[in-house]
Write a protein that binds this DNA or RNA. Sequence first.
RNA 1: GGUCUCGUGGCCGAGCGGCUAGGCACUGGUCUGCAAAACCAGCUACAGCGGUUCGAAUCCGCUCGAGACCUCCA
Length: 488
Amino acid sequence: METSLHIYNTLTRKKEEFKPLNDPFVGLYVCGPTVYSNVHLGNCRTFISFDLVNRYLRYLGYKVRYVRNITDAGHLENDSDEGEDKISKKARVEQLEPMQIVQTYTIDFHDKMRDFNTLAPDIEPTATGHIVEQIDIIKTILDNGLAYESNGSIYFDVKKYAETDNYGELSGRNIDELFSGTRDLDGQDEKRNATDFALWKKASPSHIMRWNSPWGIGFPGWHLECSVMSTKYLGEQFDIHGGGMDLKFPHHECEIAQNKAANGKHAVQYWMHANMLTFEGKKMSKSLDNSILPDELFTGNHKLLNKGYDPMVVRFFMLQAHYASTLDFSNEALEAAEKGFQRLMAGMSIVDALPVSESSDIETSAFRQKIEAAMNDDFNSPMVISHLFEVVKNINSIAEGRMKISDSEKEALSVFLKQIVFDVLGLKMAQESSNNDFMDGLMNIILDVRTRARANKDWGTSDAIRDQLAAMNIVVKDSKDGASWQVQ
RNA sequence: GGUCUCGUGGCCGAGCGGCUAGGCACUGGUCUGCAAAACCAGCUACAGCGGUUCGAAUCCGCUCGAGACCUCCA
């Protein structure tokens, strides 16, 4: 049983005990989105995964500085040298100012992150806000002889770097194979080797996002911003760097190389990679045209969906899988998650009203120990949830008088569950489908009529009301204490 | 083609050398005018074939199958 936090480090491919560089402070950097379109569900999974990490670190008492960037420049469309900047292209196509694109999708991103109840990062820097710093680091790398200028652009010299350092240490790539596999450069290329990547790109006359630099008008390379902003806000060395699995190569590999080329240090102590959300076994991505937008999922307005799901149901669904495993998305899986989530929340909502006894059959401290052990084991949220359902089972047993709980244990359980479910897992009660007094008033009248019909054994009226409401997706639930309703 | 990961009951998904994870579905029960809801109980799976071991879903080998990265992606 793990009594201290262990993290799977994708650099060493081992689970390692977490020891912050500067306890109790923890530096956490996560690669944020490129804001050229709406965030899709797969993106959200990564950020929810690292939200769990952030929340648990705070639960453990660490003083976390969470930095997550917004990529608003420099991210090229295709090959890291050929294509157009994604934001620039969108701006050109839609005839908008690039910063309009950035603003629109940054707002969308923030809205969705709020829907999913993720904690905002402490610092959210943008690439365009750090052009000066990016130019500075390029100068340093040039001075260190690990980059070269070519026709107004600056490229990182991977081959030179690989003479003293291990390019490929994170992704497990063999540098020689990398060179031999991509040898055939056409004569036009500005780069010395195909593996070299851009630190600064010369802007063509049509390129709208452009800045002045010692090498002429241009824009920064994509990989640079993360090196620069993590160093600026977390220092040359910091604790955890996270991102999606698909950023491992080349993005994170390049980041490592840039940092080492600039200051000789491997910045990151623990590399963490969140795995992909798949649909029918395939990675959800825009290019495969199988991605789903959060709003489509919330409303159910998508050809692949039978109905809409509350953001908390989606979050719960994601937390039922380990962050480092792929998670397959389907209607069935979501419906299962919805039922499970409701069961968990129902259990939580009756804790405070539980009858108490002198003695107690359950011990909150035992649950706490198991649940913390699960989280300590590389943030094993599925295991945590499994333990929580054990707790729910006990809560229900107490409610039905088959088990006992003491007053002090009840208090402890109530506090603990809120900590784990709300603060660490970041769940909250799902929004009532209809949370307004007008609707409640109407429904009370209707259910009151039905209750009176039932009292008179007028089953025809009673069932007609129930059936008609069901046709409107309103489910009537009868219990000993009267009828309640829910929009399905 | 290269690098790597994974194949768990009807579905999703933990576990990763010995103690039947969990959720959903399903079946039975309690409750109920009936149904639904809720609750309780049942449901003993680890791709195939070899090997290591007292013992393997878990380690090793092979076979089959799937996926990711190598080009933009979280």
